[in-house]
């Protein structure tokens, strides 16, 4: 038996893959099937699920409403479509902003003296040692009306004798964006750094030698060679931003509701698991579609594969 295992590569592979396969089956595949089944069900008056097959949850999500103001039988209610759209655009904006901030920093670290690089990377990672929720709360302390930013601004304005009313920063889309960018920045810096660090100095020299100035070298050599890092970072940032609800919950309050918040409330407040399940599946499908088109264009962020 052991002898046969030693000789058979495929048996070895099966055994190595088994724990993860079981894990994924029990904790991903089965719940996913359950979610799908529930999403086609109907809410029972006590917050349970009546198993049947109806598309009501989905039509509701896309704006079909029977609760109309002017007595019509049905009308279009953009509430949930807006939430979906807001989530999507916030994820796009966050990703773009994170790339813009992360790329120069990653470039700086990658070109720094090797002895200093580890220190800089350490600095990037330090925030991750603190709990995600606590960091979001810290932003609340900074952004609220009596928060640190307003206190400092007020003090400065007072010094300059300019009248100052504390800024309303908390519970705005901007606050959510700032929080998201802050939370996910390290996940973009690290993969970009990794791909930039792999570019050897002679390549920059070769570009210069062949007549390229700094800008052309960046556009034609540095950027394409670091794209795998940008792609990997984008996947690491875009997908969680689409689904997370903590940042928008704490920094957005009731003003900025995302799909994540919608799902959370359906399960906890509204006690409608069928509608929550439908929203979960739509979120997944949306994420998959975006990721699919993105990776089809740019790949999965792997090494440049030879054709």
């Amino acid at each position: 038996m052991l002898q046969r295992l030693r000789e058979s590569k495929s048996a070895q592979g099966t055994i190595l893959a088994l724990p993860t396969t079981i894990w994924l089956f029990v904790l991903l595949i089965i719940p996913l099937i359950l979610t799908m089944v529930v999403s086609f069900g109907r809410r029972s008056p006590d917050g349970g699920v009546i198993y049947t097959f109806t598309l009501d949850n989905y039509t509701r999500l896309f704006g079909y409403s029977t609760d109309c103001p002017d007595g019509q039988a049905s009308c279009f209610d953009p509430l949930y479509v807006n939430i979906l759209g807001r989530s999507l655009s916030l994820a796009f904006n966050t990703t773009l902003l994170v790339i813009t901030l992360a790329y120069p920093l990653a470039y700086f670290i990658a070109r720094a003296h090797p002895k200093q690089r580890n220190f800089y990377l350490f600095m990037v990672l330090i925030p991750l040692w603190t709990n995600f929720v606590i960091r979001v709360y810290a932003w609340m302390m900074l952004l609220r009306k009596e928060g640190a930013i307003n206190i400092i601004l007020g003090w400065l304005m007072n010094l300059l004798h300019i009248p100052f009313a504390p800024l309303e920063m908390l519970y705005t889309p901007g606050a959510v964006l700032v929080g998201m960018v802050y939370e996910f920045l390290p996940f973009m810096i690290l993969p970009i750094y990794t791909s930039l660090e792999k570019i050897e100095t002679p390549l920059y020299e070769a570009a210069a030698d062949l007549g390229a100035n700094a800008i052309k070298t960046f556009l034609r050599v540095t950027l394409p060679l670091s794209m795998p890092g940008v792609v990997a970072g984008t996947i690491l940032v875009f997908i969680p931003v689409m689904g997370t609800f903590i940042v928008s919950d704490i920094l957005g309050g009731r003003q900025v509701i995302l799909v994540g918040n919608l799902i959370q409330r359906q399960f906890l407040d509204a006690r409608d698991p069928t509608f929550g399940s439908a929203a979960s599946l739509i979120l997944m499908v949306m994420t998959l579609i975006v990721t699919y088109f993105y990776t089809r264009k740019f790949g999965f962020g792997e090494e440049i594969v030879v054709a």
Partner: peptide, 28 residues
Amino acid sequence: PPFQRKVNTVFQSYALFQHMTVYQNLAF
């Protein structure tokens, strides 16, 4: 700077652009 000198270098490590084809390397 190097890009304004009428000399060209063959590097020890070759320093070829891996993201380009042979043609694109030469055309660069």
